[in-house]
Simulated scan of single mutants.
Amino acid sequence: MASTVDNLSVVVHGAGVIRLENQSIPEPGRNEVLIKIHSVGICGSDVHFWQHGRIGDFVVQKPMVLGHESSGAVIKVGCDVTHLRAGDRVAIEPAVPQENDDFCKIGRYNLSPTIFCCATPPGNGSLCRYYVHNANFCYKLPEGVSYEEGALIEPLSVGIHACRRAGVTFGSNILICGAGPIGLVCLLVAKSMGAAKVMITDLSPERLLMAKEMGADITLQAKRETPQEMADAVCGHLSGMPDITMECTGAEVCIQTAIYATRSGGTVVLVGLGSPMVNIPILNASTREVDIKGIFRYCNTWPMAISMLVSGRLNVLRSLVTHRFSLEDSLQAFETAHQGLGIKIIIRCDKDDPL
Rank of each mutant, 00 (worst) to 15 (best):
D243V: 00
S319K: 15
D329C: 03
I55H: 06
G180Q: 11
C349W: 01
S126V: 03
I292H: 12
E206K: 14
R348G: 01
I345K: 03
D350I: 03
H52L: 11
S24P: 09
V11M: 03
G29Y: 01
S9E: 06
V158C: 14
R318V: 13
V74Q: 02
E206D: 13
P63C: 10
K105C: 09
N31V: 00
Q256I: 07
F296L: 13
D329L: 04
M246T: 10
G72L: 05
E252T: 14
K197G: 01
I153Y: 11
I280S: 06
I345S: 04
D101S: 07
V321E: 07
M304H: 13
C177P: 00
R288Y: 04
L111N: 09
V189E: 06
A261F: 07
D350C: 12
L84K: 15
H338F: 07
V269G: 07
I37L: 05
R89L: 13
G274R: 07
I42T: 08
M308Y: 14
G266S: 08
L203V: 15
E93Q: 14
C186Y: 05
E247I: 04
C254R: 00
V168N: 07
G72K: 04
V5I: 10
G67R: 03
G123R: 14
R129E: 05
L270V: 13
V234Y: 00
T245G: 02
T226N: 07
P94K: 14
P94N: 14
Y147P: 01
I295T: 15
K351Q: 06
S146Q: 07
T169N: 09
F170W: 12
D243A: 08
L341Q: 10
D6P: 03
G272Q: 12
V268P: 11
L320S: 12
L270Q: 12
N7A: 04
C163K: 11
R207G: 10
I280T: 13
R129W: 00
E21P: 01
I282F: 13
E229L: 06
Y260E: 05
T249I: 04
I345A: 02
P113T: 02
N284E: 11
V47A: 15
N31H: 12
P242M: 06
D352R: 07
I282E: 01
T245W: 08
T257E: 10
V321R: 08
E328W: 08
G16Q: 04
V47K: 05
L34M: 00
D353Y: 10
I92P: 03
V198M: 05
